[in-house]
Simulated scan of single mutants.
Amino acid sequence: MGSTRKNVMAALTAALLWAFAFVAPAAVKPASELLLVTGRYSLFGLCGLYVLCRGWSRLKAMPVRRILFGLYIGFVGYFVFYICVSYSATMGSGFITAVVVGSSPITIAVAGNFAEKRMSWRELIAPVILILSGILLLSVSDFIEGDHADGSNDSTYGVLLAIMAMLTWSYFVVRNAQSQRTWKTKPDPTIWAALVAMGAGGASMVLLPFAIASTPEETFDPYPLFKIIAWCVFLGVIGSWWGTYIWVKAAQGIPVPLVGPLLATETIFGAILSLPVERRLPTWTEVGGALFILAGITVYMIFDIRNSRLRGSRGTRDEKGSTDTSDVPAVI
């Protein structure tokens, strides 16, 4: 019991570290969103490059197509995802971005259900309706609150970018999990994580000179420059690399039904942390939208936990049957 509690606390620590990604775009201003993304993932990619160099023999043993796939999903699931998150957070709100991206368990469930039926489609109706209602409420919050005369277009674009981030992350999770389950020889987890990091870092290193050239000159004054460097180091090394290491270690000792709720705390932390940075309280419509989305995730997780227990009880009764690990979520 004590070991499980320690692992849960470690997983919550990792989720908190990841949550700062929703705060950073507003915190590093006047630096551009592109500079934050490329700076963060260039450092993340260098961490991955270091691991790949040390594990060169294991990397050479992998088929080329798998290496390319690891780089590809790293580019999509990290680089493209955080581009959407960064611009969404500055055009709209870090609070709204975190809440919308937090609904990704539902899109992951819908996409995963096509490939591997985890629950009945009827059980997904209520969570999907609640999620869509929450996103709709967040999308029109400026009009409801009477702020539509100034900046409503940016807020709408911010919500759309948050939805793109949610879909991008869902695609990454589903494709990564499917590939790992269908390969007969599982890749080394450390090498795989390094490949994903290099996928995000490679694109960042290519675009970093352009990001620096397109950044406002005031960013290179002493304090703004120190701020952007500190955030890039924190997000790239501590948040992305170390946070993922903590999560992977902790997840090995966490019961499967707890993995989903613990992952969901990342966006809850992100929404809470974003408000002090934006120096405001959430509006009533934002609170309402967040509650709808939180309710949708809760309903989904209740169904998912119940179904996981049913599958587990059937597995224990079948003493001579093969072990089925298809319901164990992949740790990213």
Rank of each mutant, 00 (worst) to 15 (best):
T182H: 05
A11M: 14
I254T: 06
G270R: 05
I254M: 09
S133N: 01
V8Y: 12
I96A: 14
A165H: 08
N176M: 09
G288L: 15
A177G: 03
G94L: 06
A194T: 02
S120H: 11
V277N: 08
G77W: 04
M166I: 07
R317V: 00
V76H: 02
F44H: 11
V23D: 09
A203H: 08
D188T: 07
I332W: 09
P282N: 11
Q178G: 06
G2R: 14
V328N: 10
R181M: 00
C232F: 04
L12A: 08
T244M: 13
G74D: 02
S322A: 14
G70A: 06
I129R: 03
I108G: 06
Y41K: 07
F220S: 01
L35R: 10
Y50S: 12
F95W: 01
D150K: 11
L130H: 05
I228T: 05
L263G: 14
V256Y: 01
V237L: 12
S204C: 09
V110T: 04
T265Q: 06
G2T: 12
R309T: 09
A31S: 14
A11I: 00
T265P: 02
L263E: 14
G158A: 06
L310S: 13
G321P: 06
V256T: 15
E145P: 02
T316S: 14
F172V: 00
I212R: 10
S313A: 13
T265G: 04
M9R: 11
W169T: 07
L34H: 04
V233K: 09
V85C: 00
V328Q: 09
Y171K: 05
V28Y: 05
I125S: 07
A24S: 15
R54W: 08
V128A: 13
L262C: 04
V99E: 08
T107S: 15
V128N: 09
W241M: 06
G92C: 05
